[in-house]
Amino acid sequence: MAEQVALSRTQVCGILREELFQGDAFHQSDTHIFIIMGASGDLAKKKIYPTIWWLFRDGLLPENTFIVGYARSRLTVADIRKQSEPFFKATPEEKLKLEDFFARNSYVAGQYDDAASYQRLNSHMNALHLGSQANRLFYLALPPTVYEAVTKNIHESCMSQIGWNRIIVEKPFGRDLQSSDRLSNHISSLFREDQIYRIDHYLGKEMVQNLMVLRFANRIFGPIWNRDNIACVILTFKEPFGTEGRGGYFDEFGIIRDVMQNHLLQMLCLVAMEKPASTNSDDVRDEKVKVLKCISEVQANNVVLGQYVGNPDGEGEATKGYLDDPTVPRGSTTATFAAVVLYVENERWDGVPFILRCGKALNERKAEVRLQFHDVAGDIFHQQCKRNELVIRVQPNEAVYTKMMTKKPGMFFNPEESELDLTYGNRYKNVKLPDAYERLILDVFCGSQMHFVRSDELREAWRIFTPLLHQIELEKPKPIPYIYGSRGPTEADELMKRVGFQYEGTYKWVNP
């Protein structure tokens, strides 16, 4: 592979701008107003304001973009700056750019259920340069409990009458099928589907988006991507930290609602779906819905739930269990780990287990898709061969690698495990991989909904998990304890083995 010439960040961002501006969906010269509902909250200060700053800094926003914060707290732009700027990672050389960014910011205080507050917000936006005809993007960085009041008031008082209007809704989209349907029906009564952007930030990850290209742009994968060759698929999300004093919020939802029903299920769809007619948003989402419709409700015998306990040999936070978090209700049975087996009941995947695993306070930070292939028929190497695996590593250190057998150097035919490896950090030294939120917010500006969740996708996802969630809430089974920093409950490994996964433990990928 030829040595790549190092590029400056300015040059890299210039390439990104060229890609972005050559499309006809990006209205570079139009006025846009980006409204952050819930501007005083954690999500706004840690993710949304920093993301908008990065896009502005790199010249990736339309030229005439204004940012308006809205929340109940009586704040000023200076207050917003004070709480969000520490997350910007701005350099001293960017000081003038930073001043320009905050000059485009404003803030309006108001209630979430008060019509007069929204009329005041609308008047404020109209007073901005060309504000009355601007395109408006409303980001709901809010708890779902206020979605209905907020969307109703936005629709009645704050819509642009000339430009387009788009609304970005953060997960969780309800707690179960019934609450999700209620919320979807409410929002759909106010906005068209092409105006609604239900954001799952995992769909903005580079390697998640790469799944489609790997599958449908490489001839070698087509013939082997089926039940005849693939023994099982494992989708993993692991965090090495616990709730760390923020367990009160987590306890309301648990690990299945927080990660599995959305992030992991979306990745499953991209692995299992048929080739779409095109890369058009609805063509892709149509195929994802077909996959979900082929999955039956989760069966309790295919589920393992766990909850982390303190590690007596650990240090600091590792010595504390979930129930030691003062914000967690006493005696909570909320799971911090889950392993679930699903089956896609169609011709391509009949009988292939899709194993979804996620948890907190585990032994490493990792998100990946792992396809394990069947054993080689007619073994001539005296059971020395391990199964081939194709691994798409989402985070950290984005990579695609194939675990395969090669001859060990020497005189004899002794096979050993090795890999074919594409590590993004080595291959793409001159490429700026956008943060997931950067990519998705740019998608909203461009009107691309491919990486957002459609209402029928959402409904099918909740259909699969709601009976299990209701059973857990009714019966309150005690989750299996696992030690902070471990791989999780051993019962999860036993479940995976029972459905056909072979864990060798003899080879570990190392970032080159």
Rank of each mutant, 00 (worst) to 15 (best):
I36P: 01
R182F: 11
S84K: 03
G254Q: 05
W53I: 01
A149I: 15
G69M: 05
G23Q: 15
L43V: 06
F237Y: 00
G242K: 02
D181H: 07
P172F: 04
L7K: 14
E85N: 06
R166E: 01
G38Q: 00
L142K: 07
I230C: 07
G245H: 12
F87Q: 08
L60H: 07
L98V: 14
L235R: 02
F241R: 00
Y197H: 05
L128T: 09
A78P: 13
K45L: 07
T76N: 13
P62M: 07
L55Y: 05
I196D: 00
H201T: 05
R175E: 13
P50K: 09
L140D: 02
N185M: 12
E18L: 10
L214R: 05
G247E: 08
K152D: 12
Y107M: 10
R81A: 10
F173E: 04
Q11N: 15
A6V: 15
D200V: 04
F241E: 04
T145Q: 07
N105Y: 09
S184A: 12
M125T: 14
N226S: 13
L183I: 14
P92D: 12
L214K: 07
N218E: 03
N165W: 02
Q195C: 12
R9I: 09
R120I: 14
E99A: 10
D100W: 08
R219Y: 06
S106H: 14
T31H: 07
I48C: 04
I35H: 02
L98S: 03
N64Y: 07
S189K: 10
A2T: 14
Y118C: 07
I220W: 13
P86W: 06
L121M: 11
L130Y: 14
S157L: 11
F191W: 10
R74I: 15
N229H: 12
A115C: 15
R166F: 01
S157E: 11
L20R: 11
N210F: 04
S106Y: 15
S189L: 12
W53F: 06
P172N: 01
Y118M: 07
I224P: 06
A39P: 04
I256V: 13
L96Y: 15
H201P: 01
D114L: 10
K238D: 04
F101M: 00
D79S: 13
I35N: 07
V108M: 13
F253N: 11
R72V: 02
H201R: 04
E244D: 15
N229R: 02
G110N: 08
E85T: 09
D228L: 08
Q111H: 14
A103P: 04
S189W: 07
R192Y: 13
F87G: 06
S180H: 06
L55H: 08
D113K: 11
L137P: 03
N105C: 15
I220A: 10
Y49T: 04
R182Q: 15
S123Y: 14
R17H: 12
F102A: 07
I230W: 00
R215F: 00
S29V: 07
I256L: 13
G38M: 04
F88L: 15
V146N: 05
T91Q: 15
S180P: 03
T76A: 10
I199A: 02
N122F: 09
T236K: 05
S123V: 14
F253I: 05
E19R: 11
S157T: 10
P144R: 02
I220T: 06
T10N: 13
A217Y: 05
S132T: 15
K205F: 02
A6Q: 14
F250G: 01
E63D: 14
F237Q: 08
Y70R: 05
T31L: 08
F26E: 11
K171D: 02
I230T: 05
F221L: 14
I255W: 02
I48A: 02
T236I: 05
P240S: 11
C232K: 02
N135G: 08
N105L: 11
R81I: 10
Y249W: 00
G38A: 04
H32L: 05
V5E: 15
N153W: 10
E93W: 09
Y49A: 05
Y118K: 05
Q178T: 14
A134P: 09
E252D: 10
E93M: 11
I48H: 02
R9V: 14
S84P: 03
G247H: 07
A44I: 01
R104M: 12
L190Q: 12
A39V: 04
L61M: 08
A109W: 12
T76C: 12
P50V: 04
A116Y: 13
T236C: 07
L16P: 07
R17I: 09
A134Y: 08
E252V: 11
R120E: 10
I187E: 02
L203Q: 02
R215W: 05
H155V: 07
P172V: 00
N105F: 13
R57K: 14
I256D: 05
E94K: 03
D58Y: 13
Y202T: 02
L235F: 11
V12F: 15
D176P: 02
L130N: 14
M37W: 05
Q119W: 08
G163H: 06
Y249M: 02
R136E: 03
L7G: 08
G222W: 09
Q83M: 12
E239Y: 00
L20F: 09
T243I: 07
T51D: 04
Q119G: 08
K47S: 01
Y197E: 03
A71Y: 00
A103E: 15
K89R: 15
E18G: 14
L98F: 07
R198Y: 07
A116D: 15
H32Q: 10
V150T: 11
I199G: 08
D58R: 08
S179T: 14
V169P: 01
R136D: 00
Q195G: 09
R72G: 02
L137Q: 07
F88H: 02
R219M: 08
P86A: 13
E63W: 10
L203W: 00
S132C: 15
R175C: 12
Y139E: 06
N105G: 02
R9M: 10
I234R: 14
G222K: 11
G131C: 10
C232M: 08
P143Q: 01
N226V: 05
L235W: 03
D42P: 04
G23F: 14
T145D: 04
W54Q: 12
T145I: 07
F21N: 12
E252Y: 09
I230Q: 00
R104D: 00
